[in-house]
Amino acid sequence: MAAVTELGTALRALVDASVSTAVGPEELRAAAAEARRATALLEADRRPPGRLPPLDDPVAFRRVYSPVTGVGSAVAPPLTLRGDPAGGVRAEATLGLLYEGPPGYLHGGMSGLLMDHLLGAAAIHAGLWGMTAHLELDYRGPVPLGVPLVLRGWVERNAGRRTDVAGSIAAADAPDRVLVQATGIFVTPRAEKMDAYFATVTDAAGRHTPPGRPTDATAVQP
């Protein structure tokens, strides 16, 4: 895990530098050559889609390359999810230029990604595994970059296979002034659909490992 975390941290620093640099063409070409050399090292052994990475552990809530929480991901912030004393889950983040939409502000699609993940994590935290069936966002104000943010998700109600969840994004220094409000419906697939969706999913050893329990999606720290 230490090596994956080290690589992920280095890659995030590289990506951040690549979108904020003002160096000239010569330096950019030199950096591109270094990036190609690193890519060649990593391409020596690749996993196919549907095979979990060796360090993923559904029982321990670990997905190391998640685009939201993965410590090994080059594009994840990464968020650390925690139980919220007010109910549900929460995370703190300060997002940089990689996620920019309007100048100085978060891309609206990134808000959708973060909220989808937070709402799903809230359902899981409540013991309700499901997949996103509907996600709706109300953009009440632009989300600033470079400012500490607080993200929340909580379950509103559950009936059978359906769970209604809500969430929000706000600046940490003004948590009651919601910038993005999200609502979602998460549904546990019927058994036959689970079989169809995840028939080819395996762990790193090749064993069939479909999701199916609340512990199979994402981590929530105490």
Rank of each mutant, 00 (worst) to 15 (best):
G146D: 01
H107R: 02
L114M: 08
H117P: 05
R177D: 15
D16H: 07
D176F: 01
G50F: 13
T132F: 08
D164C: 05
L7S: 05
A204N: 01
V187N: 09
V15Y: 07
V4A: 05
S111T: 08
S66D: 15
G72H: 07
Q181D: 12
E43C: 13
G96D: 14
G70I: 10
E100D: 12
G141S: 10
P189S: 01
G109D: 10
L14Q: 10
L149M: 03
P210H: 05
A182K: 08
P214E: 04
A76M: 04
L135R: 02
L114F: 10
I124D: 12
L118A: 11
G101C: 07
V71S: 11
A38C: 11
D116G: 05
D203P: 08
A10R: 11
G130W: 02
P67R: 10
R162I: 13
T209S: 12
M131E: 08
D164Y: 11
A91Q: 07
A199P: 04
M194C: 02
Y105T: 14
A159C: 07
A13E: 13
L98Y: 12
G87F: 01
L128S: 06
H125F: 04
V143D: 01
P142L: 05
S20I: 06
G101D: 05
P54D: 14
T188I: 03
L41T: 12
P85H: 00
R29G: 03
A204D: 04
P54C: 11
A191M: 09
D138Q: 11
G127T: 08
H134F: 02
Q181C: 04
K193N: 12
V15A: 13
V143Y: 01
V201Q: 12
V89G: 00
S20M: 06
E34G: 13
A172T: 03
S20D: 11
T21G: 15
P211K: 05
V150E: 04
R213L: 02
A2G: 00
H107V: 05
A126M: 11
P148A: 06
R161M: 08
D195A: 15
P142H: 00
L135E: 01
T132P: 02
L113E: 08
A31F: 08
K193F: 14
T5F: 07
I169S: 06
G109M: 11
E156V: 13
L137K: 02
P211Y: 06
D138Y: 00
P49V: 14
G101Y: 12
T183Q: 14
V89C: 01
L52M: 15
G206I: 11
F186E: 04
V220M: 09
G87E: 00
T218P: 00
W154T: 01
D164H: 14
A182N: 06
M1F: 13
E136K: 08
P148R: 04
R47T: 12
T94Q: 13
T200L: 14
L149H: 06
H107T: 06
M115P: 02
E6G: 05
R47G: 10
A204Q: 07
R177N: 10
A191D: 14
R213F: 01
T132V: 03
Y105L: 12
D203W: 06
L97F: 03
T218V: 14
L41Y: 09
F61C: 11
